[in-house]
């Protein structure tokens, strides 16, 4: 099994990303691409213990939400290291729609991205192959505070300063 970052720990991944035509094993928790979810929703729900959906970073999650609400897991993509579109998708899912399931970041993700990913609401991070996972855990502690409100519940710095006086 793949090793992933969940919370503040490196753990074995209990979800399987299904190849395009593969069928889910009985009782498995599987992640399928958005297109397959649209086409085979009922079949997948009947076969698998749980179905998560992987969403391209070009999707408008505001309009997509009715199709994915209630999923136990959503995976958002980093096709390239510096392509930050999914940061916005994550913030919208967490803060606007109150998505409570697992939000995972997958793709070309390196250690130096993880701090901001966590702030945007990703509880699970799946770094690219070969990335040092212990280093990623360390990087989650790079900063002890932040200026902006985000999906992690930190209040805006100016609001915290109100209480400070």
């Amino acid at each position: 099994m793949n090793r992933i970052i969940r919370g503040d720990a490196v753990v074995a991944d209990d979800w399987r990303t299904l190849a395009d035509d593969a069928q889910p094993a009985a009782g498995a928790k599987v992640i399928v691409p958005l297109q397959r979810w649209r086409e085979q929703r009922a079949t997948l729900l009947a076969a698998a213990a749980a179905v998560g959906v992987r969403i391209p970073n070009t999707e408008d999650v505001d309009t997509l939400w009715p199709e994915i609400a209630g999923r136990p897991l959503l995976a958002l993509e980093w096709p390239k290291y510096g392509d930050g579109r999914a940061h916005s998708q994550a913030q919208i899912l967490r803060r606007r729609f109150g998505f409570k399931g697992e939000l995972r970041a997958v793709g070309e993700i390196g250690r130096d991205l993880v701090f901001h990913l966590r702030r945007c609401g990703f509880d699970v991070i799946v770094p690219r192959a070969g990335e040092n996972l212990a280093g990623c855990l360390q990087a989650l502690q790079d900063f002890s505070t932040a200026y902006q409100p985000a999906a992690d519940g930190i209040a805006a710095v100016f609001a915290r300063r109100r209480r400070a006086v």
């Binding site: 510096g82 392509d83 930050g84 940061h87 916005s88 913030q91 991205l113 701090f115 901001h116 990913l117 702030r119 945007c120 900063f143 932040a146 200026y147 902006q148 985000a150 805006a156 710095v157 100016f158």
Partner: peptide
């Protein structure tokens, strides 16, 4: 300055 602080390490807008 308010804008500077908002913009500094903004987690959503650091990879525009």
């Amino acid at each position: 300055e308010l804008t500077r602080q908002w913009a500094t390490f903004h987690p959503e807008f650091n990879w525009l």
